[in-house]
Amino acid sequence: MKFASQLNKATLIKRYKRFLVDLHCQQHGEFTAHCANTGKMTGCADAGFGAFYSTSDNKKRKYPHSLELTQNTQGELICVNTNHANTVACEGIEQGIISQLSDYHHCQREVKYGEENSRVDILLEQNGLPPCYVEVKSVTLLSQNHGYFPDAQTLRGQKHLRELMSLKQQGARAVLLFIVMHEGINDVAPAKHIDEHYATLLKQAHEAGVEILAYKAKLCEHEITLSHQVPVKIS
């Protein structure tokens, strides 16, 4: 996935109101940018971190700049725009990088499904195969050299696990795909210390036959691409 516009570098001052961050750079001085991330962004948006932002040519936008990447004090890049995870996942499927999903040739995004009024991130179909429902989650929480999901209690994430289990029982293929968007993360585990119920549901989903996969993204200021599979530690 190539960024739609060239990213410029700034310094992060603070994040607030969930979707806003204040940045500083020589060109603009101090300014406010949009941040497409509903999570807590723990360890991803500290004051003084490097920040890479894009600029929209849409004159109707109140905040034309969008925060895309941050860079922590260890020099590790982090993609904080969670909207990109689905695009990166789709490209990884189409390019055959996610080998477990390479048999499907028809890909749809944001398809309504399930008993709890959900939208699946990716629906894969191929003649002769059961439909494959893929929920995508962006992983950026790093703690003690390990990656965790979620970074805050997620009722929506819990619902998705229930939906995937139900689909599996109905004969469909159900996949939870973690996309690691932090250069310092090399494995993924449920954040039981943050959302114990999610961790319990993830274990139940795994035991019910829902496939749990994690792939790491390669980040730079020009593009994001999938790199390789990393371990998921469920229990």
Rank of each mutant, 00 (worst) to 15 (best):
M41D: 00
F52I: 02
E110H: 13
G48M: 04
L23M: 10
Q95D: 14
G92Q: 06
R61C: 03
N37F: 13
V88K: 14
S66F: 00
H84Q: 10
A85T: 12
Y16W: 11
N37Y: 00
M41Y: 07
Q95G: 04
E76A: 13
N117M: 08
E125I: 10
N117C: 10
S54W: 08
V120E: 04
G29T: 05
E76R: 07
N72Q: 06
N37D: 10
T73Q: 05
H34A: 02
A51F: 01
P64A: 10
G39N: 13
E125Q: 12
V88N: 12
G43D: 11
M41A: 07
N72D: 13
Q26T: 09
N117S: 14
Y53Q: 11
F31R: 08
F19K: 01
K17N: 13
S99I: 01
T38R: 04
Q26C: 06
N83M: 07
A33Y: 05
I78E: 05
G50V: 11
T70P: 04
L20G: 04
N58P: 11
L20H: 14
R119V: 03
Y104I: 00
S66C: 00
A51R: 06
H34V: 00
H105N: 14
K14L: 11
K40S: 10
C25I: 01
P64L: 03
L77M: 14
K59I: 07
Q26V: 01
D46F: 02
R119W: 12
R18V: 01
S56C: 02
C79L: 12
L23A: 13
D121H: 12
S99W: 03
T70Q: 09
T70I: 03
L12N: 14
K60A: 04
N37E: 05
M41S: 10
Y113K: 02
K62D: 13
T73K: 11
K14N: 11
V80K: 06
Q126W: 05
E94H: 12
E68R: 07
G114D: 14
H34T: 01
A47H: 14
A47Q: 14
R109K: 15
L123F: 09
N83F: 12
N72Y: 05
L23F: 07
N83Y: 14
A85S: 12
N83A: 07
C35W: 07
H84F: 10
T70E: 04
H65G: 03
E110F: 00
G29F: 15
S102Q: 11
E30A: 05
S102K: 11
E76L: 03
R109E: 15
R61S: 03
I93T: 05
R18T: 10
C107R: 13
A47I: 06
S66P: 04
Y63V: 00
S118E: 15
R15G: 10
S118Q: 05
S56F: 01
A89R: 04
C44N: 07
Q27M: 03
K40M: 08
Q95H: 06
F31K: 05
H65S: 05
F49H: 10
E94G: 13
G92E: 09
F19R: 00
E30I: 01
